[in-house]
Each structure stands twice: as structure tokens, then as C-alpha cells.
Design a protein around this nucleic acid. Structure first.
Lengths: 142, 142
DNA sequence: ACTTGACCTGGAGCGCGCTCCAGGTCCCAT
DNA sequence: ATGGGACCTGGAGCGCGCTCCAGGTCAAGT
């Protein structure tokens, strides 16, 4: 097991750009990352671990500001674990509500699709025809 | 049944600001809305109907640009119904994938919470204590 | 006649989360 | 020694989706 990772490796692994990685560090989502003598960053296993969580939380729309707060808790030590749990749990609840809302909207959109399909089956002249075929023109119903 | 609605009514009904409503119109998500002699907008039932769909699609992150394209199809008439169905269906597919990804991330976050809860049960001294209670200090494990 | 409130316009501004850039360093292979 | 590639820095810029603002009109109420 490697004990460090280069920026390129991390970027590829998490599908983030180098710019984003640096941005996250500047924004306090990661601690000040170690450096090689050349000045290049060297990410440790625990950076990777945190980044994994950061990725999950960003993908589920946790704002950068809250992620920074969370990262600060991590840096403050184990005694903040109860608080971290609270942050994550409250995020889960928001996420549940969000997914639920997406489902509801999806359902409404499905109804609209069904409505359109109903129109098409009642008025077959509106259906997409094979390329180049001609048909008697029909007036619109608005 | 009213045959028109004021901007205030629409804003309240869809939980949008007047600014957003006007922005949507400018952006081509709605047709040029009717006006009262005073110049104030008067939304018709079919504006409301389209706005309902617009709301669903925005809430599920369809970008304004694609919504405008959709709205143009609506304005072009019934012969674009097949194309509209395609737009909506492809949106549903993206949405399914998105929800699926949210679920996966949520699962990963849940694992992290469980991990933290495990740590807390192994090291009860880390657990949140009732306000003001004192305990022997314990060193951190990083 | 005056006030209030709802709404109008065009255009500027904002918050977020990146993304890009110029100019530089370091290291390795040819 | 030269070139190329990976990375560095600080700071500017961007795309999106609103959001705000100044200054105005109009209709109804007192």
C-alpha cells in the first residue's frame, strides 16, 4: 500500500480536476496537504478517506461552507464525533426529503408523458412518421 | 373558474418570486404573457399548466436552456408532441440515474455514520455528555 | 388630492462552485 | 543541454439562475 498519492492520481481517482482539488484545499475542505521537496502535493491515505466523504457530500449537494465546517470538526479531533454524526444525519434527512421530492416531480412528469401518449394514440396523424413519408396535412388544435 | 391570474397569485401558487416569473418569460420559458389595460400581466390557464410542468422540470434540474427549447416545441404546435415526449423521457432517464446516484452516495454516508457510531460505542468517553457534566480527560486517537 | 399597494421596465449585481491563465519550478529522458 | 510533463502560485473569469434596484404607472380606498 502506497503511503502517498500524487495530485494526478487523486484527480483521476475522484474524477476531480487539479484545480478543484486545490480549490477544496484552499476552501478548507482538506487540511494543508503534505508536499514533496519539489513543492508538489502528496496526499496521504487519510486525505483520500476524507476526500471520499467530501465527494459523497458534494455529490449530494452539501454546500462547500458546510463541508468546511465538517472538515474543521474532523481536524479538531475525536471529541467532535458526536457533532459530526449530527451533521451527517441531518444531511441524510435533507437528502431523503430531496429524493422524495424528485420522485414526486418525476411522477408528475410521467403523467404529462402519458397525457401526450394519449393524445398521440387518439390522433395518430401527429405521431412521428418514418423519414420522408408524406401524409395529408392536418390542422393544429393548439 | 377564473380565466386569468395575477402575477401575485401565480407567484404564490408556484412559490416563485415575481422576478423569477418575469425572468422565465424573458428566457422564453413562457410565451409573451397577456396584459391588462394597465400593463399588468394576466396569466391564462394554459400558462399555469405550462408553468406547472416548468416547475417540475426545474425542480429536477433541467437547465433553463433545455426548458426554453421545450417551450418552443409547445409553441410550434401539436406536431411537436413526439419530440416533446422524447425530451421528457430522456429527462426521466437522467433523473433515474441521478436518483440512483444519490442513493448510492447516501448509502456511503450511512456507512460513515455507522462507523462513527461504532467508534462511539467502543469509546463511550467520546459520546456527547449531558450539559455541564465533567469527566476525566482522554487523549485523542486522530 | 393623496396614499398605498401591486405591478411595470431595463439593467446591474450576486453567490456558488468551479475553471482558466500566465508565468514559473522541478525532474527525468534523450 | 534540451525538451516535455507534472505540478506550482495568485488571481481573474465564467456560467448559471436568479435577485435586486431605481424610477415609474395605474387603480382603488379615504
Amino acid at each position: 500500500m502506497k503511503d502517498y498519492f500524487t495530485p494526478g492520481e487523486i484527480a483521476e481517482r475522484f474524477e476531480l480536476t487539479l484545480d478543484t482539488l486545490r480549490y477544496y484545499e484552499k476552501a478548507g475542505l482538506l487540511r494543508r496537504v503534505d508536499r514533496a521537496p519539489s513543492g508538489h502535493r502528496r496526499y496521504r491515505a487519510d486525505d483520500v478517506e476524507l476526500l471520499h466523504l467530501v465527494r459523497c457530500l458534494r455529490d449530494t449537494d452539501m454546500p462547500i461552507s458546510r463541508l468546511r465546517e465538517f472538515a474543521e470538526l474532523v481536524r479538531e479531533g475525536d471529541h467532535t464525533i458526536p457533532e459530526r454524526v449530527e451533521v451527517l444525519q441531518s444531511h441524510q434527512h435533507r437528502l431523503n426529503a430531496h429524493i422524495e421530492q424528485l420522485r414526486e416531480r418525476q411522477e408528475a412528469i410521467r403523467h404529462k408523458i402519458d397525457y401526450y401518449l394519449g393524445v398521440l394514440s387518439e390522433r395518430p396523424e401527429l405521431a412521428r412518421r418514418p423519414e420522408g413519408s408524406m401524409d395529408t396535412p392536418v390542422k393544429e388544435t393548439g
